[in-house]
Simulated assay, not measured.
Amino acid sequence: MKIICLHASSYNIALVDEGMRGINIEVDHVVDQQLLHLIQREESEQQYTYIHQKLQQLIAKKPDAILITCTNYIALLEQRPLISEVPLLMIDEMLFKQLPKTRQTLTVLFTNKQIVTGTLQRLRKFCPWVKQIEIMVIDNVFSWYLAGEITKHDARIYETLLSLGNGQLMAAQLSMSRAVERYNQQHQQLVIHPLEAIRKELSMFKNE
């Protein structure tokens, strides 16, 4: 099986490769940082045109599926879907599948303010049983991630998790996964995060 992974940051490549270790899938990574700039300065119609053209280029390579890790892409596709003969795997849908059907308040952590609204709309669509949602944006650290200051970025997320304690927690962005995994391992917690969601979704392809 061959999957193309579409990212907005090259630093997500190592995370996905780590998540797919031991899984019998050929992965081709494509990084597209242009959309982040378009979102800040262009009209919506240009954004939709751009993302559809980019995905058509990837579809033409005839992979078995395309995994989209950029939540900005996903939010735009929610508004303007693309009909594709190649399955488009949305990382947030993988994440939402991990949420237990409980009425407990869910705290969702973000570092990128721009994706909060779109992610919440899709969360409510896919997980209607989640009634109480609290949002926490960890300010300033997403720019560190994009600049390659990964250690500094992960440390702030880890410190934030320490301050929250117990409760139903979910990290909304793949970039947060490394810090969340460290926290889960050291504190026997279960903070839901995208990297573990990828592992579970694709576990059927594990090597024997």
Rank of each mutant, 00 (worst) to 15 (best):
I3C: 14
I3W: 02
I3A: 15
I3P: 10
I4G: 08
I4N: 12
I4K: 11
I4R: 08
C5F: 05
C5Q: 11
C5Y: 05
L6S: 12
L6W: 13
L6D: 07
L6P: 13
H7N: 03
H7Q: 05
H7G: 03
A8S: 14
A8L: 04
A8R: 02
A8E: 06
S9I: 00
S9G: 02
S10K: 03
Y11Q: 09
Y11G: 01
Y11L: 13
Y11T: 05
N12L: 01
N12A: 02
N12T: 01
N12G: 03
N12S: 07
N12I: 01
N12M: 03
I13A: 07
I13N: 09
I13V: 15
I13Q: 01
I13W: 07
I13K: 04
A14L: 08
A14Q: 10
A14R: 04
A14H: 11
L15K: 12
L15Q: 08
V16T: 13
V16F: 11
V16E: 09
V16W: 04
D17I: 00
D17V: 00
D17A: 10
D17M: 06
D17Q: 15
D17C: 04
D17F: 02
D17N: 15
E18N: 12
E18G: 11
E18V: 00
E18Y: 09
G19C: 02
G19R: 02
G19T: 03
M20C: 07
M20P: 10
M20I: 04
M20W: 11
M20A: 14
M20K: 07
R21A: 13
R21Y: 11
G22S: 02
G22Y: 04
G22T: 04
I23G: 04
I23D: 02
N24K: 13
N24R: 10
N24S: 10
N24Y: 05
I25C: 13
I25K: 06
I25E: 06
I25G: 01
E26H: 14
E26Q: 15
E26M: 11
E26A: 15
E26F: 10
V27Y: 05
V27S: 09
D28R: 14
D28T: 10
H29N: 08
V30Q: 13
V30T: 13
V30H: 13
V31D: 07
V31E: 06
D32C: 00
D32E: 06
D32T: 01
D32G: 00
Q33I: 02
Q33G: 12
Q34C: 00
Q34G: 10
Q34I: 00
L35S: 05
L35D: 03
L35N: 07
L35H: 13
L35C: 08
L36K: 10
L36D: 08
L36C: 09
L36A: 06
L36V: 08
L36I: 02
L36Q: 09
H37L: 15
H37C: 00
L38G: 07
L38V: 01
L38Y: 04
I39M: 11
I39Y: 10
Q40V: 09
Q40H: 07
Q40P: 00
R41Y: 13
R41M: 07
R41S: 13
E42C: 14
